[in-house]
């Protein structure tokens, strides 16, 4: 036991000595910062960082601003990684964002949130991505002039790496123009999280849809109750086999709720196709041939959504 006590005391003294020697505290940083790193990492993919917002020397808040830690601001102290290694010894990994690094996702995200906390961090913690241990670097690429996840044309592919069910839906015949590279996920969703269900950019589903489809907002004199509540009660916004991204074909979609005596409750079958006795309740726009104001009507005689 005495031996153990001496060992512990010795360890304590050694720690104190390390903590005060050399005038530089904490984990070892490289001797010359980025210049040390670039003496080995001179490939184009690494150097592309200098084409990004992260590498603006006159940005006092940026990693390459005056007095900042340059590469090591994100990758962590590189002294050990850049130091000499004995022959046959494996070079220690840089602490963060290295394939052989041992940092956890939370620790690596902490590196990003250290600067981006007030803009991103609070919503991030409230969202679902941290539960799934999504790393910032899973979506964002820092060493590239144009981060694909920030470009409309390339962003969906990044999201679909994990959200495969949504990718499947967007490939359906009737979908928003994701496949054409003309719409991105962040038009509707807030991937950094917030308290809105499914991380939407606006407070509700309808508020989000009506950013672009404000013509459906009303408020109408004659409202259609589900329309004012939630667009997704009838539409599948990621895509559908049916025109208009409807969840189901009319008239059956409408007949899921409307059962009034007469034409709303009649089953329209294949004998009412063009090859039989064609029915205006079934063909063309089906119910919408007459009830065309399905999102609501502002006509004094429009209670049946026909005017």
């Amino acid at each position: 036991m005495r031996l153990l006590s001496l060992a512990l005391a010795g360890t304590l003294l050694a720690c104190l000595a390390v903590g005060t020697a050399g005038g530089q505290e904490g984990p070892d940083y490289s001797r010359e910062g980025a210049d040390t790193c670039l003496s080995c990492h001179e490939d184009a993919s690494t150097l592309a960082i200098f084409r990004t917002k992260h590498a603006v020397p006159s940005d006092p808040r940026g990693p390459f601003g005056h007095g900042q830690l340059q590469c090591e601001a994100c990758h962590g102290p590189g002294g050990e990684h850049a130091g000499r290694v004995r022959r046959g010894q494996e070079r220690p990994a840089i602490p963060y964002f290295h394939p052989a690094g041992t940092a956890t996702v939370e620790e690596e995200n902490g590196q990003c949130l250290g600067c981006h906390n007030s803009g991103v961090g609070f919503g991030w913690h409230a969202g679902e991505h941290p539960v799934d241990e999504v790393a910032c670097a899973d979506c964002h690429q820092m060493h590239i002039a144009r981060d694909p996840v920030l470009q409309t044309a390339t962003q969906p592919a990044v999201c679909f790496d994990c959200h495969q069910a949504q990718r499947t839906e967007t490939r359906k015949a009737f979908a928003h123009p994701f496949s054409q590279g003309k719409m991105d996920c962040t038009g509707c969703h807030s991937p950094h999280g917030d308290q809105v269900a499914t991380s939407l950019v606006r407070q509700t589903v309808n508020d989000t849809c009506q950013q672009c489809h404000a013509e459906q907002r009303g408020p109408y004199l004659w409202e259609h109750a589900p329309v004012s509540e939630d667009c997704t009660l009838c539409h599948s916004p990621h895509g559908s086999n049916h025109p208009g991204m409807l969840a189901k074909r009319a008239p059956l979609l409408c007949q899921s709720c409307h059962s009034q005596f007469g034409h709303p409750s009649i089953p329209y079958g294949p004998d009412e196709l063009v090859t039989g006795t064609p029915s205006r309740f079934l063909l063309g726009q089906s119910c919408l041939n007459c009830h065309s104001q399905v999102h609501g009507s502002n006509h004094p005689s429009g209670s049946k959504l026909m005017r």
């Binding site: 010359e32 910062g33 980025a34 210049d35």
Partner: peptide, 19 residues
């Protein structure tokens, strides 16, 4: 020692940085 982040960067000239 761990908490402090005061690193002497006075020699970090970044002269090879291709800004």
């Amino acid at each position: 020692a761990i908490g402090a982040q005061e690193v002497d960067t006075s020699d970090w000239a970044c002269e090879y940085c291709p800004f």
